[in-house]
Design a protein around this nucleic acid. Structure first.
Lengths: 200, 200
DNA sequence: TCCATACTAGACTATTCAGTCAACAAAATG
DNA sequence: CATTTTGTTGACTGAATAGTCTAGTATGGA
């Protein structure tokens, strides 16, 4: 009942884009409004604060990415190939962002987590939760690879955490060097970490 | 000739502390001035801008940390023990920060790199450079360990990058979870990455 | 001693910030 | 068509922002 609008969605998109390509602290509510073509009154009609918009924007981004991740990590795909495709997908999406914004933008959840972990506990927790959701994909692929005999790790969840950690580190290094090429090291490092054969 | 002062040093210290424990964007010049007990006029007498202060503060921090790193990575110490001591030192310093500020604060260079890489190229380059300086310690330890036969890696600089990357990722995860305990995984992960035996 | 130099003080500007508010407009539903 | 709900508008507030400027103060060296 009442008027309908897609302003909420436009705000979510604008916020994600702006914050991802610069930082949470450097993006103002006015910036987000003008990028979304929405007036301030409407902003505060939909979201009580900038932080609440950010939380919603990250959740929406996850929901948007889920189908792709579900496909990459489908049990229909051999486990080692899941990992390989995932490494490639990370490179590709960073490449797209690089072409769009002229910079390597990194992982949105990690960026905001690193920036605000000590300042806003709700955002810190959201970042933690979203990163953990990603780990579940890795865990299942690593467990399947183990069962298949492709790798041997002592502790599957620990191996997943190590791989996830390495990814974050490398994506981050790629951002600091503003060079997507760095991400070529992703797959070999992951394989090394899992004790799998590293192809030359 | 002329008046003397330690205001410059106080500003460097205050800036590092404040930015490290929160973020670059959330710390104002006024905040830094009042923490340092320095008036604005003096601030701009010593530094042309907030960004310039930050650059100087990070350089000063590196110089301050150097003696410790030189000791840890001394060629007098067996190479694998250098790596072990380094992992321990990372944990200890994060623990100190946690007790001081109530939060895991992460790596200062990585924090500011992640926050500003897409916005301020001078700061991005500084972050990159400081992180690279750290890699030189890892490289020499890994090369020595290789010569000694403790490990076998195909490419020493690549292995150093992988270890450095993992460190950043883990310290970052520790920050997002606000839990220093996460850093217990550092040494085993490093050893795994270098193909060394992981003690139970 | 005295002066050039290095530092300090703090008021000031102009801008930007997050968030508020009250009047208004559209549209879904009865 | 009327009512109620939902969304829109943009001016407004008060606080905070980076950086400027001018008048002053301490001090090392000649």
């Amino acid at each position: 009942m009442g008027r309908t609008s897609d302003a909420r969605e436009r705000l979510l998109d604008a916020a994600l884009d702006l914050i991802w390509s610069s930082s949470y602290g450097s993006v103002s509510v006015d910036d987000i409004c003008s990028q979304a073509g929405v007036k301030k009154g409407s902003f505060y009609h939909f979201f009580p604060s900038k932080a609440d918009l950010a939380l919603a924007a990250y959740e929406a981004h996850w929901e948007q990415k889920r189908p792709l991740l579900d496909a990459i990590f489908s049990p229909q795909v051999p486990p080692m190939e899941r990992l390989s495709r995932w490494c490639q997908s990370v490179r590709e999406s960073q490449q797209v962002l690089f072409e769009k914004f002229g910079h390597v933008c990194g992982c949105p959840y990690a960026n905001v987590g690193a920036e605000l972990a000590t300042q806003d506990d709700r955002i810190r927790c959201k970042s933690e939760e979203l990163l953990n959701r990603g780990l579940r994909y890795l865990e299942s692929a690593i467990a399947d690879a183990q069962r298949e005999g492709s790798i041997h790790v002592a502790d599957v969840p620990a191996a997943a955490r190590a791989v996830g950690t390495c990814l974050m580190g490398l994506v981050f290094r790629s951002k600091v060097q503003n060079d997507v090429g760095v991400l070529r090291e992703l797959e070999p490092t992951v394989l090394q970490l899992l004790g799998a054969a590293v192809p030359a």
